[in-house]
Nucleic acid binder design. Structure first.
Lengths: 185, 185
DNA sequence: TCGCTATTGACCGCTTCGGTCATCTGGGTT
DNA sequence: AACCCAGATGACCGAAGCGGTCAATAGCGA
């Protein structure tokens, strides 16, 4: 998406219009300005993230299973709206004064919420003695992130989402087994 | 750096000049065009990476110690030239036809070389049976990357490099201990 | 004081910008 | 068949920013 690649200011409406298949006239019929469009996309993306957060199963206290569930949800979202996460990440790095305030209001709270809720009601007693749990979780996060990036580049080689999801989950489990070996009692 | 943020085409010479403290006239006295400047920066950055590769101690066959050495070197480079790595990463994602060919020639080979030499002459017998070594190394890479990103945001809070390096190394060791527990016999 | 190199930023023609609007299109209604 | 009209279209606008130039100037060694 053009906003992800170029940021708010350098994103060109001409380019946006060329890549979508509506005309410039229509775009500015629905949105009064580039900024309006941007804000709409922010709100839309935030809604999607909120849905994921709502769906977290807090009864699942095992961190690996919790993450597995969330990861699968994220995968399906990413299949339907491939750029939602990238867009929000790019928004948080946005420097344009024109939209910075709106981002601060709408995106940053959801970011804080998601990282805290993700690890709410986790059974940390499963971790072995002597391990630094915070650092372990950091490693887990970095591994998830790396694995997700890697998977993203393969997502298009599958015709079928659920087949990909199967494969994806199976592969993730072999990574998480490695970490579990180190993290758990 | 402007090229990292905006890519080759959307990077503005006016902006570059504003951020550095030379005038536009001087810039175009030293470089005939924006492209010339870009190519110069590519070549310069590649040289720096090559220096790191040259300095790899292939007698160190323990992957954690190997990575520790390289990481420290990278840290010192990053202190002197903070954007070298980011710049090369951004170059590899560059889409502008005007510079794509040059990047392919100059940057991609070094990328391949560095990832292969990094793991040359490593003693894989230290890994425990049953572990998927490739996946373990991926986890190690992702963790390194994550840790590096995290460290980068703290680098400016230290007045002294070597003091930071000490702290950095110590902290990295506590991460690598966690992984070592899982990876090694 | 002179000579000369290195530096400067106002300026150039040109492209692209965000946004407008007269015109067109196509399907529903009579 | 004639009419209607909401929605779509892209040529067009003034303004801004682009990469690059160059006459003017600064600064320094002899």
């Amino acid at each position: 998406m053009e906003f992800v690649q170029s940021g708010f200011e350098k994103a060109s409406t001409n380019e946006i219009v060329k890549r979508s298949n509506i005309s410039k006239g229509s775009l500015f019929n629905y949105f009064n300005s580039k900024k309006d469009l941007y804000v709409y996309l922010i709100e839309y993306s935030v809604q999607i993230i909120e849905q994921i957060i709502e769906q977290i199963d807090f009864n699942e206290t095992d961190i690996f299973k919790r993450i597995e569930n969330i990861g699968l949800k994220k995968l399906h979202i990413q299949q339907k709206f491939p750029q939602v996460f990238d867009f929000l990440v790019s928004a948080m790095q946005e420097e344009s004064a024109e939209v910075k305030e709106i981002i601060k209001q709408k995106v940053e709270p959801i970011y804080g919420e998601s990282t805290s809720k993700m690890y709410e009601n986790i059974d940390y007693d499963k971790f072995r003695e002597g391990i630094d749990i915070e650092k372990a979780i950091e490693i887990l996060n970095w591994t998830m992130f790396g694995f997700g990036e890697k998977g993203l580049s393969q997502i298009n080689t599958f015709e079928n989402i659920s087949k990909f999801g199967e494969q994806y989950l199976k592969e993730w489990k072999s990574y998480s087994e490695i970490l579990k070996y180190s993290f758990y009692k």
